[in-house]
Amino acid sequence: MRSRVALVTGAAGGIGAAMVRELSGRGWRTAGLDLRPAADADHSVSLDVADQAQVCATVRRIEREMGPVEAALCAAGHYAIVPVSDIGWADWRRMLRVHLGGTVNVCKAVTPGMVERGRGAVVAITSDLAVGGGYAEAHYAAAKGAMIGLVRSLAVELAPSGVRVNGVAPGPTDTPLLPPDSPWRRPSYLQTLPTGRLTSAEEVALTAAYLVEDGTYCIGEILSPNAGAVI
Results as ranks from 00 to 15, higher is better:
residue 2 R to H: 09
residue 3 S to I: 01
residue 5 V to N: 11
residue 8 V to L: 12
residue 8 V to T: 03
residue 10 G to R: 09
residue 14 G to H: 00
residue 14 G to Y: 02
residue 14 G to N: 00
residue 15 I to Q: 01
residue 17 A to C: 05
residue 19 M to Y: 03
residue 21 R to W: 02
residue 26 R to D: 05
residue 27 G to N: 05
residue 31 A to Q: 07
residue 31 A to S: 13
residue 34 D to L: 06
residue 34 D to N: 08
residue 36 R to Q: 14
residue 38 A to N: 11
residue 39 A to N: 08
residue 47 L to P: 03
residue 49 V to T: 05
residue 56 C to Y: 14
residue 56 C to V: 15
residue 57 A to F: 04
residue 60 R to K: 15
residue 61 R to I: 13
residue 62 I to V: 14
residue 66 M to Q: 15
residue 68 P to R: 14
residue 68 P to H: 10
residue 70 E to N: 09
residue 72 A to M: 07
residue 72 A to S: 06
residue 73 L to P: 03
residue 75 A to R: 01
residue 75 A to V: 02
residue 77 G to A: 08
residue 80 A to S: 04
residue 83 P to M: 06
residue 84 V to S: 07
residue 85 S to F: 06
residue 85 S to M: 07
residue 94 R to Y: 01
residue 95 M to T: 04
residue 102 G to D: 10
residue 105 N to D: 09
residue 106 V to P: 01
residue 108 K to I: 10
residue 109 A to I: 13
residue 111 T to K: 06
residue 115 V to N: 01
residue 117 R to K: 13
residue 120 G to H: 03
residue 121 A to V: 10
residue 125 I to D: 03
residue 128 D to R: 11
residue 129 L to P: 04
residue 134 G to N: 05
residue 134 G to P: 05
residue 134 G to R: 07
residue 135 Y to W: 15
residue 136 A to K: 08
residue 136 A to G: 03
residue 143 A to M: 07
residue 143 A to L: 11
residue 143 A to N: 11
residue 146 A to T: 00
residue 150 L to A: 03
residue 150 L to P: 01
residue 153 S to Q: 09
residue 154 L to E: 04
residue 154 L to F: 03
residue 154 L to Y: 01
residue 155 A to N: 06
residue 156 V to G: 12
residue 171 G to E: 00
residue 172 P to C: 05
residue 173 T to W: 01
residue 173 T to Y: 00
residue 174 D to A: 14
residue 175 T to Y: 05
residue 176 P to Q: 09
residue 177 L to K: 08
residue 177 L to V: 10
residue 180 P to L: 07
residue 181 D to A: 15
residue 182 S to W: 02
residue 184 W to N: 11
residue 186 R to Y: 08
residue 186 R to S: 15
residue 188 S to Q: 15
residue 189 Y to I: 12
residue 189 Y to N: 12
residue 190 L to R: 13
residue 191 Q to E: 15
residue 195 T to M: 14
residue 197 R to N: 00
residue 201 A to E: 04
residue 204 V to Q: 02
residue 209 A to W: 06
residue 212 V to I: 09
residue 216 T to C: 05
residue 216 T to R: 14
residue 220 G to A: 05
residue 221 E to I: 03
residue 226 N to S: 09
residue 226 N to F: 04
residue 228 G to T: 01
residue 231 I to Q: 13
residue 231 I to T: 14
